[in-house]
Design a binder for these strands. Sequence first.
RNA 1: GCCGAUGUGGCGGAACUGGUAGACGCGCUGGAUUCAAAAUCCAGUUUCUUCGGAAGUGUGGGUUCGAUUCCCACCGUCGGUACCA
Length: 940
Amino acid sequence: MDYQARDIEQKWRQRWETEGTYHVSNESDRPKYYVLDMFPYPSGAGLHVGHPLGYIASDIYARYKRLQGFNVLHPMGYDSFGLPAEQYAIQTGIHPAIATSENIDRYRQQLENLGFSFDWSREVRTSSPEYYRWTQWIFQQLFKHYFDKDAGCAKPITELVERLASKGNAGLNADCEEETPIISAEDWNAMNEREQQLFLLKYRLTFPEESYVNWCPAMGTVLSNDEVKDGVSERGGYPVERKLMAQWSMRITAYADRLLDGLDDIDWPYSLKEQQRNWIGRSVGASVKFSLAEDEATKIEVFTTRVDTIYGASFMVLAPEHDLVDQITTDAERANVDEYRTWAASRSEVERMAEVKKVTGAFTGAYCINPFNEQPIPIYIADYVLAGYGTGAVMAVPSGDQRDWSFATHFDLPIVPILDAQQNLETEADATKEGKYINSGMINGLSYEEATPKLIAWLEEQGIGKGKVQYRLRNAVFSRQRYWGEPVPAYWKDDVPYLVAEDELPLVLPDVDKYLPTETGEPPLGRAENWKYQGKYDYELSTMPGWAGSSWYWYRYMDPHNSEAFVGKEAVDYWQGVDLYVGGSEHAVGHLLYSRFWNHFLSDLGLVPQKEYAAKLINQGMIQGVIEYIYLIKADEGDSSRVFVSADKLGDYPDAEFAQIPVHVDFVSEYGRDESYLNAEGIKQFIEWRPDYSAATFVTNDAGHLVTKSEVGKMSKRYFNVVNPDDVVAKYGADCFRMFEMFLGPVEQAKPWNTNSISGTSRFLNSFWRLFYNRDEWVVNEDQPTKEELKSLHTAIKKVTEDVERFSFNTCVSAFMVATNELGKAKCHKRAILEPLLVLMAPFAVHMCEELWEKLGHTTSVHHAAWPALEEKWLIEENITYPVAINGKTRATVDFPADSTKADLEAAAPGLEDIQKYLEGKTIRKIIVVPGRMINIVVG
RNA sequence: GCCGAUGUGGCGGAACUGGUAGACGCGCUGGAUUCAAAAUCCAGUUUCUUCGGAAGUGUGGGUUCGAUUCCCACCGUCGGUACCA
């Protein structure tokens, strides 16, 4: 019988399900291992061939660990709240829960089709109330805690209340809003309930605040920074504007240092860690207050990383949106300043980015005093200073900073050298820290290392500045004016938010008549009828962002049905955290940063044992598609003729301009290859698909082909090049699909999808099958294996074990091919060889190996067998083939006994017949011998 | 601009600590089997060559007996980031 993938795969999928083969228990004597895939969002489009790449890799690793004797947790679930289902609901009126559930069913079916070893009894969905109950619960814990900087962790807000009542907040080192006033215990106790609650919001780890947000009018929602790309929404590409709105916010900045330091403890890709480091953007420097020249009481605070350059500060620049601009602008300059501010506000993000090099700004007419030398310096506004970073004001040191230098040059402001090592200040700034200070008052003659502490000490003494650490990381906006998300479990009383009682969770998402904002501009939840807390208080109407549910989900898998806690203590004590996390690098500064933040918080509360939840992470590369275009001659206006030209015939139209029209890849012959084309049938399909081109002319080549242009790019609906894994599985089987995807190349590398070579993988599986079957005849025998056969087996064991350990799955597949070729040539059908080989390959070809394992007489699953042990003795050779090189160039290969010593080889090498001609007339200067590797004779 | 990744036959890729460059697979060429096809099997396949050899891992240098691997400079491609004071 030839290998019949379809029947065998179906049979085993059913058997595994009924027998619970992949069911995982929280109680085991085996050591635990947790392999996690990044949560998929179940989109309506289903899986394409790029999605399973990481799942296959993690499944192989999970199965390998299981065979190694680990109790492996390998779950799957869905991040099922999200915008596409809501957009669909807006268009169709169908409740997003219904569409989502259908999409999940389809995903599940597609995933099962690939033979993954997920324990489906642990499946979770972020949009189910049983799940989001705990997302809401964690949100409430964040509300109930503040960050104590001395302790370096979160503390209950009740402790803060006690402290405020007894001592006030003087000397309290806690993360809080920038301008939190210092109050005494008397002040606190004199406050009414409402005032106290408002005050506490300055400390809570989640809190509502008026803040500038990325408002997307087209989508009617707020986006986080990582959802905005180039000034437009990442999803949909709609324009985004800055708008001041009341939003819930997460005080992630409190954890900035811990998130930075934690990176040192986890084995994640270097580039991913770098992205997080840059995103957090820690800068060490100082804040300095400059007094206004006309009004000493008004201070402008700046942040600088180079306080040592302060004597070179020859002007100050404020962001156009800075609060003080109105107040300080002189009447003479007001018109000018207003004009600049209007202009700056009108510029889109895109324009600002495009014109980075252009110097713009306006003088306010005001001056401030440099506290160190008492010199007045002019105050400008310019949009190169960002309102959202630091204090929105900078002291400009043109000799040391290129932007300041350009600005000074443009406005003819002084450029004062401050270090004797600075060079070429006429042509550019020099940011060096070398040399000794000049023109710098108290630090003249000092070095950088000496100057900085001295200046900071002086600032602190004077009470006008201090050493400060600034982060690029902003607090994360946590509200979305959307329907399909977790309701925020809070209500409003006297304009103050309060939490819904814990035992009333989940706060279930109410039904609404339409999934659109209300007429008064409130979020969709404003449409819910009679939706009030205790019948009288307004609920918070915004919902949580997409990343809420995915910020803790790995714990739910450990204990998915627990109704008492988000995860039971026993479960989390057993599983601890994720040992291997597999997913795309596109989540580097979104999910992977927010989830680390929540995990740090949960660990502060003692609810989870590890500060970092994923010890190791690997990124899978994207599988790209090939986009197939056909060339259309651009017609003049009014000309209704449409002419498509074969790509190899473009030369016949030297004057024409061509448009590239993407064509559905299903119509293309030789898809993915340079010479791909539309044949007559393909052209017919194209016309049926695009009836507006039914009258078009198609200029084909001599073979009657319309040659297409093939380009590697994203696999996307937009390019009609999405390849569905189901189709490939139907044709070749899931095992072949799994092996083929692994064989394409290293998992972490991006690569184009191209099925041209899948036949090789398919052929290989057939030859492997033929080690067991000759047509219908079962040919496995009980003969004693030869040395060579044992060597083939153990070479494979060694190679595959090592390569799986380092996630090099492509080379594993080639090791299987090598072993199969060798055994096939040797006509080896021996159980003693094939049985261990089956176990070795079981994580890859999961169904086929199971089938053959059963045929070998086993009654338990191959996936519960034991990983074959390597016996080194079979790898030892009697002879070793040495390359013999003359001056590094290999001239001969010669066998020597394996136990030859270095001296033996040195003595024997020059006498070898094959190399005599290279030695003639030359002197042997040196013989280099690396035993077991090579021999090199140096002549001259 | 900055940060990161990457560059090897016609193609995907291998070479893990510097030690026979091109494993394995695709494709291609020739052959066997077959009525024919599919499937399968065998041989060949980096380039140039005066058939002795010579060159060759993006380019140019360097270290070394020996470099795809290490160092320096540069070029191309991909990803991230964007005036962060």
